[in-house]
Amino acid sequence: MTQIFDAENRAIFAQNYPETPHRLRHNLRDHPLLALDALAQLGESLPAASVEYNRGDLPTGVDPNSDIANGLSIGDTIRTVDICRSWAVLKNIEQVPEYRTLLLDLLGELKPIIERRTGAMLMPQGFIFVSSPDAVTPYHFDPEHNILLQLKGSKTMTQFPAGDPAYAPDETHEAYHTGGHRNLVWREELACGATDWTLEPGQAVFVPVMAPHHVKVGPDPSISLSITWRSDWSYAEADARAFNSVLRKSGLRPRAPGRYPARNKAKAFAWRVIRKLRRAG
């Protein structure tokens, strides 16, 4: 397989991982598994829980309880992406052997860098986004280390500082890590803290764990691939957030977990004990 990230781009990644957003270039172009028809077939073969597709003509901020369905099947959404004004994501593509090989080959190029910095590369996952022109992915965050590779069309990811409660309040993090939604409340005054990353085919952007962002597709249909992984640090941060929700419900005002390289071990361990007791109860 042709190397996707060359030596220069691996060096850029090494300089910035895991906390600094940065642009990369990749050589993943015209792969047959990422063609539109192949993706429609993939979407039809995945379990329902691994497919999400909605209207794409949405505002930046969306109420998690809103009805944003597009009325189509996943296959029809992808095949008519140029006209259906929708947004689709195929989750956990590693469930399919051919796509798992593709994902692990990509991450394998970066694995030595990742593991020197944040330890074992855990839970490698892949997500494919197929979007109509001008589609919007609302303001949200994700718990994984993430590189978004643009394959077809263009899109602009507007990214905000990770770990700053001005953009994602501590209470929202705590709710998410105890079963809540990842969408965030958008306010126009947040825009002053944004950094725009406009991606053309062959470009990629790194997204730190829990960095808030929203996405707007350009004037043509877009296909992009998100390659993600977890680390002991990211799991500890998530579990410390969950433990903080217990403290907050007890009337306390807990301090937010530290960003990398803070370990967050004590709170993470406490939450894991609570979780284990709840499951045993």
Rank of each mutant, 00 (worst) to 15 (best):
E115L: 08
T118N: 04
T118E: 15
G119H: 12
G119M: 13
L122K: 11
P124E: 02
G126W: 04
I128R: 06
F129R: 08
V130Y: 03
D134W: 12
A135T: 03
V136S: 02
P138G: 13
P138D: 12
H140L: 08
F141R: 07
D142Q: 04
P143V: 00
E144Q: 09
H145C: 08
N146C: 11
I147G: 05
K152L: 13
G153I: 14
S154E: 15
M157F: 11
F160K: 01
A162V: 10
D164H: 01
D164G: 06
P165L: 03
A166K: 11
Y167A: 04
P169E: 02
E171C: 00
E174C: 07
T178V: 06
T178N: 10
H181M: 03
H181G: 00
R182C: 04
R182S: 12
N183H: 13
L184Q: 11
W186P: 01
R187E: 13
E188Q: 14
L190T: 01
T195H: 06
W197E: 00
T198D: 05
F206P: 07
P208V: 08
V209Y: 07
V209M: 12
M210V: 05
A211F: 06
P212L: 09
P212F: 03
P212R: 09
H213E: 11
V215I: 15
V215C: 13
K216Y: 00
K216V: 15
K216D: 01
V217W: 02
P219W: 08
P219V: 02
D220R: 04
P221I: 13
P221L: 07
S222A: 15
I223G: 05
S224H: 10
S226Q: 10
S226Y: 04
I227G: 01
T228A: 15
W229G: 05
R230H: 09
R230I: 00
S231V: 05
D232E: 15
E237A: 14
